[in-house]
């Protein structure tokens, strides 16, 4: 077997992308999920629908809009290149933005469900005992929602690993910057390099299975604290 031809750079890049994306997704997703779980606002269904859009839209639609958005005249691309001097398209930062949009529902939805299941009462109890809102969130809601957090992190991570169509459209396949494992596999299959395609695909298959297995096992074990 020709192991020399197997390149580990895309694997590292993919892991880096998935981890960064999950980080960004938590920062963006937790407030959205929290707001969705506790608001009585009339625009809630609209926000819910927007968050769920990446589930139903083909990656080509996301990819098409992202190309425009990240491009030199796009809403994101223009300010970014004005600030940093670098274009956003074909960059790692651009891929992180793409993956964040693409995996958003996978993080927001589990969090939303858990926050909703916990409800307001544990928080209200904490407030009456003198905890600040921030305190109550960190010391009461977060431990209670542990299961939701784990599900959100793992699904967001795994879904970003499996990203393909969007990256194919906006990535540009630059080694070390935007050439992720799924694109590498595609290239191998196209050039009939089946050995490498087998190794990478098999690896991804086993890895993804293990990740999901971990979530489902943990989900069984972790007690549900919901009142």
């Amino acid at each position: 077997m020709d192991y020399a031809a197997l390149n580990f750079q895309p694997i590292l890049l993919t892991l880096k992308l998935a981890l960064t994306t999950v980080g960004v997704l938590l920062v963006v997703g937790i407030p959205i999920a929290w707001w969705l779980a506790h608001t009585g606002s009339r625009i809630r269904p609209i926000v819910e629908a927007v968050v769920a859009l990446p589930l139903v839209l083909p990656p080509t639609v996301l990819g098409f809009y992202l190309l425009i958005l990240l491009g030199p005249h796009g809403w994101l691309g223009q300010p970014f290149s004005a600030l940093t001097g670098d274009p956003l398209s074909f960059s790692f930062a651009g891929l992180v933005i793409a993956s964040t949009l693409y995996s958003l529902p996978f993080v927001v939805q589990p969090l939303h469900t858990t926050f909703e299941a916990i409800g307001k009462s544990p928080l209200e109890a904490a407030w009456t005992l003198g905890a600040s809102k921030w305190d109550a969130f960190w010391t009461v809601a977060t431990p209670l929602a542990l299961r939701g957090y784990i599900t959100a992190i793992v699904l967001g991570f795994a879904h970003t690993l499996g990203e393909f169509g969007v990256v194919l459209m906006v990535g540009g396949s630059i080694p070390g910057k935007t050439k992720v494992v799924s694109i590498e596999i595609y290239d191998h299959v196209e050039t009939l390099e089946y050995t490498q395609a087998h190794i990478l695909s098999g690896g991804l298959l086993i890895f993804s299975f293990l990740v999901l297995l971990t979530v489902y096992t943990l989900n069984r074990r972790l007690p549900v604290h919901v009142s």
């Binding site: 190309l67 425009i68 990240l70 491009g71 030199p72 398209s89 074909f90 540009g172 396949s173 630059i174």
Partner: peptide
């Protein structure tokens, strides 16, 4: 090499340039 972006085929390559992403 570090500045090269690759289109999956020549159509995508053309689209990268015409959209000024490259």
């Amino acid at each position: 090499r570090q500045r090269l972006v690759q289109g999956e085929n020549i159509s995508q390559t053309f689209q990268f340039v015409s959209s000024e992403n490259a």
